[in-house]
Structure formats: C-alpha cells, structure tokens
Design a protein around this nucleic acid. Structure first.
Lengths: 214, 214
DNA sequence: TCCTTATGTAGACGGCGTCCACATTTGCGG
DNA sequence: CCGCAAATGTGGACGCCGTCTACATAAGGA
C-alpha cells in the first residue's frame, strides 16, 4: 500500500474505478501541459496506485492520451454549444444563421485560447473522421465540433447566404481557416497577442470566410 | 574514443565542427520523426561523440530543436521560392500576381505534405514574429515564408485584386487558412487523404481565400 | 467452498536529459 | 618557444520515463 503525497490514500486493495480516475488525472495533466504532460507514472501517482496498474486499463501510454484526447474534443464541443446557446433569439432567420455560424467559429477559438493544453491534446495524433464522430467527443447535444460546423453551414445554405455549389466539403475549408488561426495563436507566431487583438483577428478572419463562401 | 556503428569514426580528439554536425543530424531526425524525434543522445551517437559533448554547443535539448526549427523554416521558404521561380512568365500583370499568390499557398502546402516532419518542427514552440524573420529561416532570396506571403499580397493590392482596406494584417488571416489546412492534412482528421483530394482541397481553399479578400 | 479471473504490486531493464568531475587540445601572452 | 587558461570532449552518475515479467490479492460464480 503505497503512501501518497496527495493525501488520497486507499484502504482497499482494489481502487474501485481506476480507469476513470486515470482519465480524470490525465485530463488534468493535459489541461496543464498538453499531450506530452500526460505521463503514465505521474497519473498513477496521483491515483495512489503503482505505475503498472495503469496497464490493466490502457495497453500503453498512447491509449490513455487518446482517451484524454476524445474527452478534450468533447469539452471543445460543449464549449461551442454553450456559445451557441448563449445567443439571443433573432427574428430574422438569415441573420440568426449568420450569427450562429460566427458563434461556431468564435467558440472554437475561445476554447483554444482558454484551454490551450486541452485543445492541443484534442488534436494529438487524432483519429480519422469516423472515430472523431464517436459519442465521447460530442457535447451535450450529441454533436461533435465538426458536426456543429456542418449544421451551421447547412443553415447558411438554406438562408441563401452561401452558394449550394460550395457546400460539399466546405466544412473542411472553414475548419482549416479557424483551426489555423487557433494554432498560430496558441503555439505559433501569433502567440502572446493581446485578447483584443486576437478577437479582432478572429473577427476579420470570419469576415473573410463569409465573403469567400457567399 | 568511442566506436561508432555509423562507421564514421574520428581520429582527432576534437570533432572539428560538432555544432554543425549536430544540426545536420538534428534535421535528419526531425525530417524522419518531427520535433520529438530530435533526441540528444541519438544525435551525439550519430556524430560519434559522447552525449555530453552536445552541451558544449547547446545549453539544453530544446536549444538544438530550436536551431533545427529555424533551419526547417528556411527549407520551407526555399521550397516556396522554388515554386514561385517555376512559374511561367505572364504578360497580364494581374494574372501574374494572382498566380504568384496561389503559388505561395500551394508551395506551403506541398512542403507540409512532402516533409511533414520538418514542417511540424518548423512550428515547434516557434519564436515570436521578430525572431521568425531571422536570416536562418529565410530562403535563398532572403525572405521568410511570412515575407513571401506579404509580398504576394502587396502585388494583389497593386493589381486591384484586393481591397487596400483589407491589406493590414491580411497575411495573418491568409496564413491561418493555409496553415490550418496543412495541419489538418498532416496531423489531423484529413490525414491520409489521397493526393488528388488534397490538391482539390487546397485549390478550393485558395479560391475561397481569394473570394474573401477581394 | 474453491478456483478462475480481474486487478494491483514488486522489481527490473533500457533509454532519456542533465549534472559534476576529469581529460585533452588549442591558442594566446610572455 | 613555453606555459597556462579557455574551449572542447569523456566518463560516470542520478532521477525520470515507458514497459516487461513474475507475483499477490481480491471478487464472484461453479
């Protein structure tokens, strides 16, 4: 029975729900330091468990990181959903669609800048599209970030704010633009921009996208 | 005098130019496996030198990775320049500007997909803007990727293919879009796309950007 | 009740980054 | 030309990591 600095000792031989505990700790680590910071030994330490115990639930470190990654993607989805939910109801349907589309982008960017560690982890050795649609990476509404964007684009088309001809594959193009800004802002040469400047850049970027979509 | 599997033994106690050798090996490692693959011990091994010798030239591993990163950025610049140089001379000035602008983007994306390890390394814990303009990260023409893009945008404005009002800060927006697609293609959910599909996406993305800029 | 199975522990191995002490050169001031 | 300080490379150690094998303990069904 290993003593624990964290004060969280255990009286039973069994942990109870180690897998879940490791996931929680992993999220905590990723939040603070990105994917590389989710370290098996540290996770087991915080869970008051021997290092090897982790291997009963994850075949290797990468599997834990992957699980954390899906959870992080879910948190991203949730953050975007919250941004959408906070929107005022607009009577003009086209205006509402446009507002929702913009909120999808700004929500994405806000999460990236608020939780850079989780954001980076969400895209760490990420799954191909099929797995990215797993329920774990969805928000409360059951939609992944990708699907939220797709829905916003559909709205745009139905309100004639976007040419239907451009619709196929458009999520990937829009996603690229927004994701690129997010990456440049948190890791790249735009890192350290003031909030107001970053917001301005986000605004201008979405303007540009809207113009290119029309 | 340590034996070396690599066959490259040394008869002098001094290496000669270890710093340069480590950089070369570092680039090789980054090329094959990205920034995380730039491992001090392996680099010194390949340079036929004791692990600690590296510390005479780089205070810590991160410093070596950083040097490799600048070199990788330089290679990116060179690749873009080559793409520009290969363009046919067009009589119509506006058409030429447009073609050059597109070539900047496609060159960037081609390098990302051709040399993903180096591309990822180029953006690993990257410098802020000022250092990114260092001569190391420039191509043969002395311009960094960022500056190449800026020049292309200036051309667009002077040919009235872009509103001057949109010019300030536009490189960051365009950069975001192209960079985002690059990241999604090599690391993200678009990884594993066929060449033709990736080219199509690149084409469509640049179309969209052009539309948004006008 | 007993035995299979799930779960956690103990100890070891090799690899890594980094520190300290020591060895060998180089090159400069006299 | 000499001698000595500074530059450069070596050797060994430490603590951390991921992972393997062997073993211990608990839970639950026959």
């Amino acid at each position: 029975m290993p003593e624990q600095a964290n004060g969280a000792k255990r009286d039973t031989y069994r942990h109870g729900n180690l897998r879940h505990a490791l996931l929680e700790v992993g999220i905590e680590l990723a939040r603070a330091g990105g994917p590389d910071a989710v370290v098996l030994r540290e996770a087991t330490r915080r869970a008051s468990v021997a290092p090897n115990a982790a291997y009963r639930h994850f075949p290797r470190r990468e599997a834990l990181v992957h699980a954390v990654s899906l959870a992080a993607m879910g948190q991203l989805a949730r953050a975007m959903e919250e941004g959408l939910a906070a929107l005022p109801a607009l009577s003009d349907r086209a205006e509402a669609a446009r507002t929702r589309f913009r909120a999808v982008g700004t929500g994405y960017l806000r999460f990236a800048r608020t939780e850079p560690g989780l954001f980076r982890t969400a895209f760490y050795v990420p799954d191909d599209m099929t797995e990215a649609e797993a329920t774990v990476s969805a928000g409360a509404g059951g939609l992944t970030p990708f699907q939220l964007l797709g829905a916003a684009l559909d709205d745009l088309v139905s309100c004639e704010l976007m040419t239907p001809a451009r619709r196929p594959g458009a999520e990937f193009l829009v996603w690229s633009c927004v994701h690129g800004l997010a990456v440049l802002l948190i890791d790249g040469p735009l890192r350290g921009l003031q909030d107001t400047q970053a917001d301005q850049a986000a605004h201008d970027l979405i303007d540009m996208i809207e113009g290119g979509l029309r």
